[in-house]
Write a protein that binds this DNA or RNA. Sequence first.
DNA 1: CAGTTTTTGGCAATCGTTTGCTAAACCTCT
DNA 2: AGAGGTTTAGCAAACGATTGCCAAAAACTG
Lengths: 358, 358
Amino acid sequence: MKNNKDLPVEEHSGPLMADVARLAGVAISTVSRALANPGRVNEKTRAKIDAAAKQLGYTPNAMARGLRVGKSNVVMIVLPGSLYYGVSQVIPQVLQGINRSLSQNGYHLMIANLDRDEISERHILDLAFGGTVRGAIILSSDLPVDGGRSLKDSALPIVSLLFDMSHAALPSVVTNDRQSVRDATSELIALGHRRFLYLAGPVGNYHDNERYLGVLEALAEAGLSETAVIRSGGTLDYQHGFQIGVAAAAEFADLTQKPTAVIATSDDMAISFMSCVQRMGWKIPADLSIVSFDGAPVCEYSSPPLSTIEQPVEEMGQLAVSLLMERIDAPERGAATRHVISSKLIRRESFGPARPSI
Amino acid sequence: MKNNKDLPVEEHSGPLMADVARLAGVAISTVSRALANPGRVNEKTRAKIDAAAKQLGYTPNAMARGLRVGKSNVVMIVLPGSLYYGVSQVIPQVLQGINRSLSQNGYHLMIANLDRDEISERHILDLAFGGTVRGAIILSSDLPVDGGRSLKDSALPIVSLLFDMSHAALPSVVTNDRQSVRDATSELIALGHRRFLYLAGPVGNYHDNERYLGVLEALAEAGLSETAVIRSGGTLDYQHGFQIGVAAAAEFADLTQKPTAVIATSDDMAISFMSCVQRMGWKIPADLSIVSFDGAPVCEYSSPPLSTIEQPVEEMGQLAVSLLMERIDAPERGAATRHVISSKLIRRESFGPARPSI
DNA sequence: CAGTTTTTGGCAATCGTTTGCTAAACCTCT
DNA sequence: AGAGGTTTAGCAAACGATTGCCAAAAACTG
């Protein structure tokens, strides 16, 4: 094993556990036990070993360990297409929170982008089935499939974030999209608004569904008809939020009976919508109230400052991680619970009482 | 090897290469060669093997392969603290571009957050020295150190992105911060501006240095004194861009001799500054011209639309990846080249001729 | 059909660590 | 000093793939 015959160099990599053992004057198995198990080795020798390891700058080979014990310390996050883009900052904040929590648990974060193409799906499945990752957090309503393999029937612990996938047996961490939009809408109704414009995400999308239902519920509760709200958009993905807002502004300009309040499902849409509509001469909030979703920091600095429903993404990310840790530690496959963390409306100047008449 | 004595179950993981070999009726070494080497095996048997692999849903174990061949297919990106936050979207776009390029090269992306604390530095070094990652792209001007280990003297191929670290023997991909700011400043001078306010990033920061130098160079070229520019900020990190802008607005209000043009080193600062200053009654661009840096999409929708120097971050990310691939393939340790990709000023309504007099 | 080339099959070593085992070494306490 | 209990050494077998080697088999060639 250590008879490196007559090969003088071993440039390939750093010091091995055998080197540490030799320097510390102990057996290799003792080193292994000292570094991994807490109590199985005497304190004095452990100190000796630690010193030797530090002196050599020894770092255990993660792949060798992973291969042996059959597990890795990597978690992957599956992100839909380019959900980056724009301003909403939801994804970066999520990454931030998740990465921090994972670090504290001794895990690393790997990014897997779920584009529509076959190759990215295969990559994700390779990670999942190739033993590279120990668990996954997904931000998408459909799991990748390739050939005979599917994330769904992998033994990998998975937690869904932002999307409610508890029906698919995945523990899910979501915000109360519907309720928070419903509350916001009710508030607008209380301010006298009776006609609404809803800026939609892609039709069929979980968030768009929920938020729109929130609007409808508020209307119903107030005894208003569903015709009180006009849907705009629905074809583009959230990543094209700005375009959606621009298009919606044009649509708004053409309406004969103008709504007095706008509910946007992302800050991007709201920002570009507001900008366009102001350029056309409408006053916010005098002519038109606007409320949007996400809670991007920039909303505070638009003119007027934009009211938005803030998602506690960092907190959600942390919860997702701790759920994942539970699943990893105790792989009992029951109880796909749904955890809701409430968003809250940040009230700013972009909305106010409805204009008396239109 | 395959005499699993009398253990009935092997739930641990999916099918092995041995299973594929058995199903395809070939030897295990043939399977290995078929899946890795392109030409070493007959086309017919390779097809048989592929079919068997697909039927079983076989995925090679990445850690076993990695251990054997001594390399992984993971690249890590080292991000400074929480550079996320805000609106500038530089980081998310960088991640996007890098991840896409890496995927095309068969690599995966791992995120390593370089917070100030010791634990995160250790994590990064564990990744580097533990054989987990094959290369690194860093977005920071200082490399992590822990105990006797330092990224600097690891054999890991590293490429620096956004920061010029060619002096530290790292190939670097940067934009022409200085030149682009200089050009923008010159343009403002040509419009009659003679007094400037510069919204600074943290003092000592590479980008802040470069961009400020750009301003100074433009002033010098026009025969103006350095006193023509007032620096504001310099204490907070870029992640607190909004706060910097707010503080700068207050500072601006107190100035007895007002500048007529503002040069901000990030979009965040510019946005919050503009918002505050407008609220105080100043008109943009009539009273004050503003130009900022980054090229966040949202700038198009502020009021007035914000002029900004757009960094081609996606392109820079791609270049960084291809440089890294070169380093990986040919680990000759020479030529730490510096690659510059030009940013360009996007002219919008936030700047114009200087107000006749102040 | 013999001779040559291409393709496979087996075998075995290897990557660096973990872990079960037995026996030896050490320590503590009467 | 010997009993009883901890620790450690040393050995060896994993983990799942890659790879060099040689012989066997198959496929071509003339």
